[in-house]
Design a binder for these strands. Structure first.
Lengths: 194, 194, 194, 194
DNA sequence: AACTAAACGAGACGGTACGTCGTGTCTTTCG
DNA sequence: CGAAAGACACGACGTACCGTCTCGTTTAGTT
């Protein structure tokens, strides 16, 4: 995720043990002290690595966390074609909500989105490496519905995606209301009915 | 915003001059150095106040910023009844988008939402003092539409609000795509058509 | 000790209750938290007085302490004439050591001497109001011995005083060895034998 | 003075440049602003070191000052045997007084003795690292005189040391009278005559 | 096998900001 | 009008992390 070596440089190779220990320590710490209490100093201490080793491979604590998250829950899951927008969208939403409703995952996502606001460079990486990949999945689903003529008029593909993810993120970030299947049903109703 | 004394306590009264200088300095600094570069130390120095004075009245820099924002753009604006959901909602969205599209306001909102994720106590205050007030305004508009029978079936009042604000915030936080009248039209189409 | 009124000024008179409460609180606090932990803030809080009231009457916490000490143990005690330097000096030393050996008195004296080094203005007041008065008492005793021809040659009156008080203070400040009658005997021996 | 390395610990070594800069800055500052005006903040700023670096190696500003003093005037100077108590003691006193009469040295000593009263832990270090070493030097001189039978009866070795240093310190701390060779003569007379 | 290069743990370094404490001044209200 | 209460500007405190920089050690190629 951080580099594509290919070559054959001399010198000691990157230690997979360190990498794993760092990512594991990060996940432990985020659960124990929260994102605000997470520090590179703490990650290094907990993992038994030196600070330099962390800085060598990740530009910020948010990037460590992003990679740690990726090791847990992979971001790209193909969506099988269930034959209709209603069925496809419902399945996608129920799966996605289930993931976000898991406490540690939801907390991490909130922290990363927060950091993306404060650190623009990380924001770009977060968009690229996470948000856009998720949009693509939903996008393919919507394109299939478009081919079937199931989409509402007057609303662009991109805006539809914004509405779906917007509602999801708004619940996560703002109201912190539960993400359940009822919300999935309502969103499906809103989009399919239009 | 912090207290409603009514009191007759002895002792020197809170200095309005200090309060104003602090809020003004905060707005200057957020424009100059951004939220990440904003510090209580810096606010105190720029405003000519002591750090203690800031800490006495606000629990965090985000709270200062929230109050500073409130002095600039008041949060509650009544929405006149234009006779139909389409007209009401479009006007509300265009006005709201126009505010959020202003660079300093949008930046500040993003920073506050970010901080709300990281600092749960501030999160509660932000919800209470800002987010819920905005929801109320939209809620009244939707209730009027409900009375007229203009609302889509199968979607609750709260979820409708989530969809509208969710899309708005998602654009602000995630895609950073422009908030223009076209988006307003699409949202109106989606909701009114359903 | 700080002022000699005589006057007929208008306005409310100085509150003796406040003065006493402040001095009493000071003695309590010095015992509880030591000189370093003693603050004007704390004295005011403990005594129920306002900080301003303390500042109005004493220039520093050391001055409060000096006056509090004076209320406890009066500084000038006449020394009866026992007929010889040996007897006079021994009595003076035993009495003086007994006072300094009392834990709170010794601690306070050490603190005041320390403060006198750090704050030159207080140093002058301490010398004037305390140290010189003590020297005078010993000086009179030595003068009587001089009249009797009991003093060693080659050592001035002032230097003799320096030697006696120097040894006393050095034990207090530096070695913190006990101040007992044996030391009195040795000093008497040294001076009378010479 | 703070540690006995010998070690083979990993990690970057202590920077001698920082140490020297800190001690030098301390001596400059004590001359410019006095002990009360001396702050760790100021020492760090003047020396170009970080505050943490100062705190890492010294527990208080007094300890920095003590070590800075030790780099300037070494504390242990052997006293040559001049053949008699009178000669030895006079030389010791004249040398010692000359040192203490130097304005910055005297000021620093006064400040350290003051701090030793206020901060008991530093008091122990001051006694151990400075006062006792000086006592040893004088002690050896007195032991030589004892071997020659030159000491007054009825006065212990330790008390003799107390008398000499007591008089010296009392002049420094209390009367602030000059430390000149006349005082040396008088002390020699007092002790040798007894 | 010797050499070179990089990664590693450890930890000191110059910094910045933190949140708190005490100072001495001021303003307000009460008795 | 004195004295309480308490807000204020100021400045230093000691701490926590930041991100960088040596150290000495370990691990891989490359000669």
């Amino acid at each position: 995720m951080t580099d594509q070596p290919v070559r054959n440089r001399p010198g000691r190779k990157r230690s997979a043990a360190s990498r794993d220990a760092i990512l594991a320590a990060t996940l432990e710490l985020i659960a124990e002290v929260g994102y605000a209490g997470l520090t590179i100093e703490g990650i290094a201490a907990r993992s038994g690595a030196g600070k330099q080793t962390v800085y060598r491979w990740w530009p910020s604590k948010a990037d460590v966390l992003l990679e740690a998250l990726a090791t847990k829950a992979d971001v790209i899951v193909p969506v099988p074609d269930r034959g209709s927008l209603v069925a496809d969208l419902r399945e996608f939403l129920v799966d996605t909500f289930a993931l976000g409703a898991k406490q540690p995952v939801g907390d991490t996502l909130r922290a990363l989105m927060a950091q993306a606001q404060v650190d623009p460079a990380f924001g770009d990486r977060f968009r690229e490496d996470f948000l856009l990949r998720r949009r693509e999945v939903l996008g393919r689903l919507i394109d299939r519905a478009g081919d079937r003529g199931e989409l509402p008029a007057g609303v662009s593909r991109e805006t539809l995606i914004d509405v779906v993810f917007g509602t999801l993120w708004y619940r996560l970030l703002a109201t912190r209301a539960p993400l359940g299947p009822e919300l999935a049903d309502e969103l499906v109703a809103l989009i399919a009915r239009a």
